[in-house]
Simulated scan of single mutants.
Amino acid sequence: MANKHRVKLTANFEGNLKEVERFLLEADALQAFDALLIELTDTVIPNLERFPGMGRRFFDRPTRSVEASNGIDSLHRKLEAIAKDGELREYILPHYLLLYVRIDSTIHLLSIRHHLQLSFDFESQWECSKGTQ
Rank of each mutant, 00 (worst) to 15 (best):
N47Y: 12
V7E: 05
T132I: 11
H5W: 02
L25H: 07
L37F: 00
K130W: 08
L9Y: 08
A29C: 06
A35L: 14
E14T: 10
D121I: 05
S69Q: 11
R61C: 01
F33H: 14
G55A: 05
T41W: 00
L75C: 10
D28H: 07
D104Y: 01
F120L: 15
N70C: 04
A27H: 13
A81R: 09
T132K: 07
Q133R: 15
Y96M: 05
S119N: 14
T10I: 10
L17C: 10
E39K: 15
R89M: 06
K78A: 14
R89G: 04
G53Q: 09
T132A: 06
D34Q: 06
F58E: 11
F23L: 10
S74P: 00
Y96N: 08
E26C: 03
L98K: 03
G15S: 15
T43P: 03
R6V: 08
I82R: 12
R89Q: 08
K130M: 15
L99E: 04
A27Y: 00
A32C: 05
L36W: 03
N70G: 03
P62E: 15
C128H: 10
L36C: 06
H76K: 15
E67T: 01
N12R: 06
S69L: 10
F13Y: 11
R50D: 10
E127P: 02
P62I: 13
E21N: 10
R102C: 12
N16Y: 06
R56K: 13
E26W: 03
Q125Y: 12
G71P: 02
E90S: 01
A32Q: 08
T132P: 01
E26S: 09
N16F: 03
T63S: 03
G55H: 00
L17G: 09
R22V: 06
R64P: 01
H108W: 13
Q117V: 01
Q31T: 15
L17S: 11
S119F: 10
R89H: 04
V7S: 09
I92G: 03
R113K: 11
F23T: 12
H114G: 02
V66L: 01
I107K: 10
F58G: 03
I112V: 09
A68S: 05
S74W: 07
P46N: 13
R6M: 04
I45N: 05
L25Q: 02
F23D: 09
R50G: 11
N12T: 04
F122Y: 13
T43N: 15
P94M: 07
Y91N: 03
L36Q: 07
S69W: 02
T63N: 05
R102F: 01
A35F: 11
E49W: 06
A68T: 02
I107V: 15
V101A: 09
